[in-house]
């Protein structure tokens, strides 16, 4: 019997955005509340996993034409870069800086370079989990 998963695919179209918004929230809320790069990355890969379950590997590759191994590399560059950036200012490795910055549209923001390090963690977690899932799940024969 030919099965159709219309309900799952319609639910995925709604839930995907909710999970992505929640993962981005949990990523940015990591400084003051529970959360951070690791959980946010896992939740983002959970959203992509839901897309993989409802559709298939080829469709998801068309939607997200990203090589996830490159994403791991970019995340590691972010982490190393925020660590090495402090060496320019004659500070020890991984010294973080913060300050109030005036951003044109958003106004006064209190920014911290630990967020960039967290972004590296986020990209590494998403890349590693998605490459594991795609390697195991996708049997190309």
């Amino acid at each position: 019997m030919k099965t159709s998963n219309v309900i799952l695919q319609s639910m995925t179209k709604v839930l995907l955005f909710l999970i992505m918004i929640f993962s981005i929230y949990i990523f940015f809320a990591g400084h003051y509340t529970p959360g951070g790069g690791f959980v946010g990355g896992l939740l983002t890969s959970g959203a992509i996993l839901l897309l993989l379950l409802a559709y298939d590997l080829q469709t998801v590759r068309n939607i997200l034409p990203v090589n996830f191994l490159y994403m791991v590399a970019v995340g590691l560059v972010f982490a190393i870069g925020t660590g090495a950036g402090s060496l320019i200012f004659n500070k020890p490795f991984l010294t973080h800086a913060f300050g109030d910055l005036h951003v044109p549209i958003l106004g006064e923001l209190h920014l911290h370079t630990a967020t960039l390090f967290d972004l590296g963690v986020y990209l590494v977690v998403v890349g590693v989990t998605m490459s594991i899932i795609q390697t195991i799940g996708g049997d190309d024969e």
């Binding site: 099965t3 799952l8 839930l15 999970i19 929640f22 949990i26 959980v39 939740l43 959970g46 996993l49 839901l50 993989l52 379950l53 409802a54 559709y55 298939d56 590997l57 080829q58 469709t59 899932i133 799940g137 996708g138 049997d139 190309d140």
Partner: peptide, 28 residues
């Protein structure tokens, strides 16, 4: 909210395995 999402994804994966035999199919 996190656990609700994870439980949902786990149940969907298990049901798809029961129905089709594969969890992630290559081409639809």
């Amino acid at each position: 909210l996190l656990f609700g999402i994870l439980a949902f994804i786990g149940t969907v994966a298990f049901s798809k395995y029961l129905e089709k035999g594969v969890i992630i199919d290559h081409d639809r």
